[in-house]
């Protein structure tokens, strides 16, 4: 958050208009993640269970949170019935999320910060047993 506002200040105050834009591009980090879908959720992304993906952090942000990842997933991976995956700005209740084999309820759910090479697993419990 801090860096974001600093960047804006530069943009406003700086006399050289060319500077800010390449700067903010550098700031956006690219992160390699492994995403796994299970319990039927893979059907929403063309029946592929494991996705190795590269995700950019949102503009000028230095970190990627689960919240950012969820919106990235819904736009880039979920091909059908998005309501089976998302509800509001989080996953649909009944979808379990594990970040590096750890329940995301322990890491702050949407606020969980992701790092390079993290493994995120989504499993639906909504199917019959």
């Amino acid at each position: 958050m801090k860096s974001e506002s600093r960047d804006r200040e530069i943009e406003v105050e700086g006399c050289d208009a060319v500077l800010p834009s390449p700067f903010s591009k550098i700031r956006s980090l690219n992160m390699q993640l492994t995403l796994e879908f299970g319990g039927g959720l893979e059907l929403l992304c063309e029946s592929v269970k494991v996705h190795k993906v590269n995700v950019d952090t949102p503009n000028e942000a230095e970190k990627l949170t689960m919240k950012d990842l969820l919106s990235w997933v819904s736009t880039n991976l979920i091909k059908e019935r998005p309501e089976m995956f998302m509800k509001g700005d989080s996953v649909r209740p009944g979808v379990l999320v594990l970040v590096n084999d750890c329940d995301w309820e322990l890491s702050g759910q949407l606020d969980t910060t992701l790092e390079e090479k993290d493994v995120v697993v989504f499993i639906s419990t909504l199917h019959g047993g």
């Binding site: 299970g38 319990g39 697993v121 499993i123 419990t125 047993g129």
Partner: peptide, 9 residues
């Protein structure tokens, strides 16, 4: 159910 799903996972 959550634990049943996590168990094998």
């Amino acid at each position: 159910e959550k634990e049943i799903v996590i168990y094998p996972c």
